[in-house]
Structure formats: structure tokens, C-alpha cells
Design a protein around this nucleic acid. Sequence first.
DNA 1: CGACCTCTTGAGTGAGCTCAAAAACAGTGG
DNA 2: CCACTGTTTTTGAGCTCACTCAAGAGGTCG
Lengths: 254, 254
Amino acid sequence: MNSASRSVTTREPTDCHDCPIRQLALFRPIQTDQLDTVKSLRTAQREIPPSTELYREGDRIQESFTLFSGWVIRYKTLEDGRRQILGFALPGDLLCFQPDLGAPNTHSAQTLTPVVLCAFPADDLIQMFRRYPELAIQMSWITSRDEAIYHEHLINLGRRPARERIAHLLLELHYRLTVRNLAEPDEPVTLPLNQEHIADAVGLTTIHVSRTLRTLREERLLNYQSGVLTLFDRPTLVELTGFHEDVFQPRPTL
Amino acid sequence: MNSASRSVTTREPTDCHDCPIRQLALFRPIQTDQLDTVKSLRTAQREIPPSTELYREGDRIQESFTLFSGWVIRYKTLEDGRRQILGFALPGDLLCFQPDLGAPNTHSAQTLTPVVLCAFPADDLIQMFRRYPELAIQMSWITSRDEAIYHEHLINLGRRPARERIAHLLLELHYRLTVRNLAEPDEPVTLPLNQEHIADAVGLTTIHVSRTLRTLREERLLNYQSGVLTLFDRPTLVELTGFHEDVFQPRPTL
DNA sequence: CGACCTCTTGAGTGAGCTCAAAAACAGTGG
DNA sequence: CCACTGTTTTTGAGCTCACTCAAGAGGTCG
């Protein structure tokens, strides 16, 4: 139950031979011959500054990324500039996996923090699946978990009022960070989010997010100020928002 | 470009040997030896009346389903009974695919119409992936397309007003039906939805759906009454809602 | 210091909600 | 064929949650 980012110890300057392993080994030990093959992918590790666009809706990116460290948002924008954040990618998450090599991206992605990621060509990945079906099955595992997360977001946007939406999002992020050992269960965490990010994730205005955060603070439920999140009363928050942490757990082992 | 439901000609009483093929053959021809294996799955075909629960949140269903005919909704409910419809499954769609055999379902599913579906044990499916990686890759294809659909729903719920939300949903359903040859591009279609379904899908009240449908009708954009959908002015609707049909296309061939 | 963010607060508005009741419709049984 | 019941849709009236517009406060950086 180790986080991907913590295992970054030694680092090749241009290549990171073991990155897909690091992603997938979360679930199951892999045979050494598989490991060799994956190493042979020779994929590039990159360090990227904050607020950088990784890819844009409509691009034809033929790479996938594994996040080693940092935060990335995936989002869509409407013609008039309104933005919907689809999700926050944390260390260990996979980005931009599209088995259809020709298809344009359906959304954009941008770094929130300095980011270290490992990029590998999508067709290499598919070749690897072809050779090691177990990896493909694990991939289906990942995407199926992602689907459950989208379900949570949908009911959040569709059927919950502002206070619960925001609280649910912050509970989610807090939990996902603790699971990765990037936060302590009962300690404050620093998030790289401003109120606009929250607003665009839960479908509100920044102004309303500001007001709602204030009421949450006044109710002594949680505090989010200058990037520091403190959960005062997690049980009540969980109750209030109907938060089910199971969905946000890493995949169980096979 | 054939719909799964149309190819139901002969029908075994209890088994439907070829159903996963029918699902996956949409994308790519499969070798005959693969076909034999799939047939050997001996999965059961079922006919199910309308308004029947297929599975419920929290159940541990170890089967997946391919829809042959009829409509199914996938949804989640909150403690107080509020419901969010996550999506509408149409003929050819896959339901309840969960590679983690032990995990409980994260949502419920219910038939809207009489339904014919093919059920097969999840671990058989995984065995099949193990043997034929190509199928696993195609599965990742399917789920990746599903993800893009959820993205559309998220921006719909989060960033669009009622009129656009409803219009977008109806455009989506209309398009998905035409792609399956279950509707003619410029003809009215019959949908098994009442206003409550629409409301629960787009995060509104039935009352507001009623009013909004009236305005859409008065604007001569579309009409949805007693289950019949007519798109009066598709171009304007597409423009208005920012509808991108690409996402809802069946997967392109490999 | 000024320029630029981000956050906060106030005032007014409006989209979508609640509550309530009537109308339309389908099915059922007499 | 009609009364009776249950469901779905429609309409009205009033309210509220979340939005817009506008201005001020605070923090950061060159």
C-alpha cells in the first residue's frame, strides 16, 4: 500500500524505465520477464512547471502519462469560457489513456503544481497489453474504478446543494491524499487549489464558493483558507455528504 | 455498423453462445478459435420485464450483461430518496462490468422497457481476456469511450442551464439511437422516458423539466410529448448545446 | 510603491425550487 | 361504456439558493 510518488528514489536523467511497473505494481507483483519488457519501453520522464497545459481538447496525443508527483486537472471548456473540472489527478494516477490512437482528445489537462510524470507512447502500451494480458486486465480495473468516481461526481453535481458538494470534494481529496501517504488522517493538508478550482469542479461560482466555505468554517465543520484544509468534524461531514470512501480506495489486489 | 439487437434472429432457450462476440465483433473480426472459446462460455440469455431491478447498489454481482434489446438505466440514490441517473444503456451496451469480483456494486440498474440481455460470469470474462488480450484491449476501448461520455454529462450538469441540459440529453439519446439503426435521423423517435427520468438524469425537478420542455416546444426547437421526441431544428440545438456527436459514436475499428 | 491576484462582502436578481392543486391520461372493474 | 384509481403532466404562487454586478480588502511580487 505504497504511494507511487514515494518510491521515486533514483532517477534517470531522460528515461524512467520502471514507471508503468510502478503504476501497475500497485495491484500485483509482476514476473521479472514482464518487468524487462516494460523497461524496454524506454519512456521519457519529464519535469513540468506549474500551470502548464499538458494537452488540449482536440489534440491528437499518442501518449499516456503516469503522474509521479504533483497535481494535474483534467477539464473541458465551453465556447463562452465556462470551465468544468472533470477531476484532479494525484501521484500514481494515469492520464490521457486512449486506446484509439487516432482519436482527438476529448478534454484538456493542466498542471497545478510542478509535476514529474512519465510519458509513454500509447501504442507501446497496447503492445504491452497484447503481450501481458494481465496488465490489460489491471487496466480495465483502473478504468472501472475511475468510472465509479465519475458516478460520485455526477450525483454530487446533480443532486447535492452547494455546501455538500464542496464538502464532498474536499473529503474526497483529503482521503485520496491519505491513501497515498501524502497526508495524515487527522492533520491539516495543503492543497494547490484556489476557490476557482473548487467552483469549476463542483459547478458553482467562485463567489458562492467563498460564501459557502465561510459557512462551513462558521459551522466548525472544516476550514479551507490559503490552501490549507482542516477537517474539524470528519464524522459529521461524512454523514452530511454521504461520502463513501470505498470508491476512492486504490484497487484491491487481484 | 449493425445494432446488436437487430441481429437477434435465432435464439437458444437458455443459452446465447455468441453474445460477447456480438458485443465485441462490432469493432473487429475475431479469429475462429477465439470464437469457439467465447461460445464455450455458455452464458445465459434472459428476458426481463420492464421496471425490474437488475442489480442494486451494494450487491455483489459477479456477472456482466450485454443488452440485446430494450433500455436500462443506471442510477444512484441518496438516503433521502433523491436519485441521479448516471446513464441510459441501449442495445449493444455493456452493463455491470467490474473486474474486481469481490467488490460491491457502486450503483443500481433498472429496466425501462422489456429487455433481452445476455449475462455471463465476470470471471469467465476475465479468463477470456487472459487468453485473448485483444478482447481486453477492446474492453479498455469501450471503457475509455464511456469515460468520455461521463465527461459530457459532467459538463452538462455542472455548467449548463436547464434548457441546454435537457436539449443535450435528448440530442444524445437521439443520436445514439440513430447510430444503432433504432431511429431515423430526421424522424420522430419514441423514448421510454417520462419527465422524471429526464429530471433525474440532468439534475432538475420534474416540474422544471415540464416547464422547460414547454419553452423548447414554443421555441420550435424540439418536442417531447407522450414519449415521442421530435427534433424540429437540430442545427440550432447542436449549436445551442455544444453537442459533439463524436463522443457518442461507436468505437472506431482498430 | 504600484500592479495584480485572490478572496470577501453587499445588494439586487433570477433560475430553479417547494407546495398545492388541477388537468390529462391509462388502466381496471363493474 | 362509464366510474374509479393511480400515474404523469401542467399551471400558479411564493420562496430560496445560487448568480450577477460592483466594490473593497488582503496578499504577493517586481
